Computed example of a mutant assay.
Amino acid sequence: MSYKGQTAFLTGGASGIGRAVTKMLVGKGIRVYVADRDLKGAQAVAEELNTGDKAVWTVQIDVADWDSQRSAWETAEAEFKRIDYVFPIAGIGERRSFPNRPNSAGYEKPDLTVLEVDCIGVIYTVSLAVQHFRRQQPNKYGFRGKIMPVASVCGFYIHQPIPIYTAAKHAVVGLVRSYGKILAEEKITLNAVCPNKIRTGISTAAVYDKAEKLGVLVPIEKLLEAFESLMGENPMSGECLEVAPQLGVRVVQFIPFINEESKISADMTYERSHYLHEPIMDDKI
C-alpha cells in the first residue's frame, strides 16, 4: 500500500533495523527524517534513497540527551510541518554495567548508558511525538499519529547475561502496554515491535551466522511485516508484536489477572490516575 505524502521521524536509521525501516517507508511514498548519532551513516542512507524526489533528510542526534532530541525533532517539524509516524529505533547492546573487580577497594558507579539510550531515549522520543500529535488533526485514516518503538523479546523473556538491556526493554514494553491504551483515546497509537535475534550491529557476525545455521535468526522481511501491519488504518494500540524465528509475527498475550479483585485494583488505578494525562490548558497552569 502507498502512503504517498505522509511523513515519518526515525531514530537510529543509519544502520540495522532503522536503515531497513527507512527503505521500507520510502518505498511506500513516505518522506523520512532520519536522526542518528552517526550522521555520515545517515547521510549515506539518504544518498542511496534520494534517487528522484527528495525522500530522506538527516540530522545528528544523541537520543539519551533531551536537548539533542528536541532540537532534532524541531528541525524535522520545521521541514515537514506534520509528522504521521514516529519510530524510536536507536539502541545499543549490553556492556559491563555492573563493576566486577573483586580485588579493588571502594565502590564504582554502574554504567547505565544502555538504560539511558534504550529506555530514556525512547521515552524522550515518545514524549516529543505525543506532544506534536496532539496539535494536529486526525488524518484520513482517523489518527493523529502512530508511534512504533523497537523493544525486544528481552522485554518479556529472560536473557540472564544482559540485565540492563533486559531491564530497558521491559520498561519499553511496560510503557507501551500502559500508555498505549490511554493514547488510543486521543487517536494516537503506540505499539512495540519486539524481534528475536536479527542481524544488526549489536552483536557479531559469528553470532548471527550461528543463529542462522540453527534456524533462530529472524529475517528482516518478517520484522518489516510487523511494522507494516501497524500502519495506515490499524487501530491497535498498547500491544507488543513479537517477531519470532520460523513462526513470524504475533501479538504477545501476557499473563491475565489472577482474579477479579486484581482487575478491580487495576481499574481503580486507571480511575485515580487518568487525570495525569488530561490536557493542561495555559490558563489553568
Rank of each mutant, 00 (worst) to 15 (best):
I158S: 10
L276A: 12
E233Y: 07
I164S: 09
S265Q: 10
V45G: 09
I258V: 15
Y3K: 05
E239W: 02
G232C: 11
M148C: 04
R134H: 07
E48Y: 09
D84A: 02
I202W: 00
S178C: 11
I258T: 15
E225Q: 15
A72V: 02
A8L: 03
K284Y: 08
S15Y: 04
V122L: 03
G91T: 11
Y179N: 04
I162G: 08
E79N: 09
D67N: 11
P102F: 01
S152K: 03
K40R: 14
A167H: 04
E271T: 13
L39D: 04
P102L: 00
F254D: 00
I30T: 04
I285S: 14
R37Q: 10
F9C: 00
E225G: 15
F156S: 13
S273Y: 10
V243K: 03
K169P: 13
R272D: 09
R96L: 01
V122I: 01
G215W: 02
A8S: 05
N139D: 00
I198R: 11
L230C: 10
I255T: 15
R177D: 01
S152T: 02
S97G: 02
E239D: 12
D267L: 15
L183G: 02
Q43W: 07
G91W: 06
T75V: 11
I120M: 10
E47M: 11
V176T: 05
I147M: 01
E108H: 10
F257H: 07
D84R: 06
G121F: 10
Q253E: 15
V193R: 03
S97I: 00
T125I: 06
N50E: 06
E261D: 14
I92M: 10
M236T: 09
Y165H: 04
A192L: 03
E239V: 13
I264S: 14
S262I: 04
G145Q: 00
I92P: 04
I92R: 08
T51L: 06
K284A: 13
H277C: 12
Y165I: 00
Y141V: 00
A168S: 14
V122M: 03
N234Y: 04
K109P: 05
N139F: 00
V216E: 13
V153M: 11
I30P: 13
M1Q: 05
M1S: 13
L276I: 08
L214A: 03
G27A: 06
I17D: 09
A129Y: 02
M236F: 01
I92Y: 08
L39I: 15
D62Y: 09
I280L: 13
L112I: 06
I17N: 14
E108P: 08
D62T: 15
Y124C: 09
S71A: 14
L276D: 07
H132F: 04
E225T: 15
G232W: 12
Q131K: 15
Y107K: 14
R272P: 02
A206K: 14
L175R: 07
D267N: 15
M236H: 03
R101W: 03
S104D: 00
K181Q: 13
N191P: 05
V45Q: 08
K284I: 08
G29V: 02
